[in-house]
Design a binder for these strands. Sequence first.
DNA 1: CTTTCTGCAAACGATTTGCAGCAGC
DNA 2: GCTGCTGCAAATCGTTTGCAGAAAG
Lengths: 147, 147
Amino acid sequence: MVAAPQDWRQTATAHLARAGQRLTQTRASIVELLATSERPLTMPEIRELRPDLAQSSLYRNLVELEQAGVVHRVVTHDEFARYELGEDFSGHHHHLVCSRCGVVEDVPASPGLERSVAAAMAGAAEATGFRIDHHRLDLIGVCRRCA
Amino acid sequence: MVAAPQDWRQTATAHLARAGQRLTQTRASIVELLATSERPLTMPEIRELRPDLAQSSLYRNLVELEQAGVVHRVVTHDEFARYELGEDFSGHHHHLVCSRCGVVEDVPASPGLERSVAAAMAGAAEATGFRIDHHRLDLIGVCRRCA
DNA sequence: CTTTCTGCAAACGATTTGCAGCAGC
DNA sequence: GCTGCTGCAAATCGTTTGCAGAAAG
């Protein structure tokens, strides 16, 4: 399910094409940045890594990439949104969120947990009439650095 | 675990007192509003229900109430934050989120699911050095009205 | 060429804050 | 009276948008 490291370019091109968009230089830079990072990045972090890219272009492209399913925007209580590659690239996972400094770390999903969540989704769907597409599990605490 | 319907005033007073704050009229109005509502409310919804309260007072008091643990702020991809009573009032639950209209609905947590999540939390804590305090599970889909 | 993308600067809008008057001890 | 709360209006700041020139095809 996870694309090989060097395949993000191909996969991103395909996703973008399906949305009628191209993988431009700026977009490739963004995807490469996120593909290289261990964790979701905030706009300030992205800008620090690529000061040559205009902030408005970054925001605009992140929107395009999100609509194309290449990028996923992670929203927490922190002041900045964070961006990571979509699950087509990174595989399904959950997030550890530090309530002190806001840092977000990935944590792989375990089959047992996924089975329980799937059951909960089915139950909730039946009870409420929602059509449930996916889920998001955040484990919230204090990271080692902040403890 | 869930306070009786008429007990929110007492519980809120206690929580606020612990934070060195009082349950003023405005705050009681807010808590009552949230206690009465079936789902988390946005600021526009709150203002529509209580047009007499100033928006700045609402925001300011929601911050106080959140710090006192009375109110919980629900952040989604929607443009507005949503507010609900804390779990000391409403009991532990998860959220159904409509990706179309943004509405958030409560869904009770099942023991089996909680057990799986607890195991995942323990595993992630050990693997990463996070001290994990709690979790948040959102089931994301399309509500009946939007379908 | 035509279309899409980029960068700059200006606009937007949810939330926050300064301040003067009011309410509760 | 003090101290903390309220409401109004102004400020803040992450994010979005208009526009003119630059790339891609």
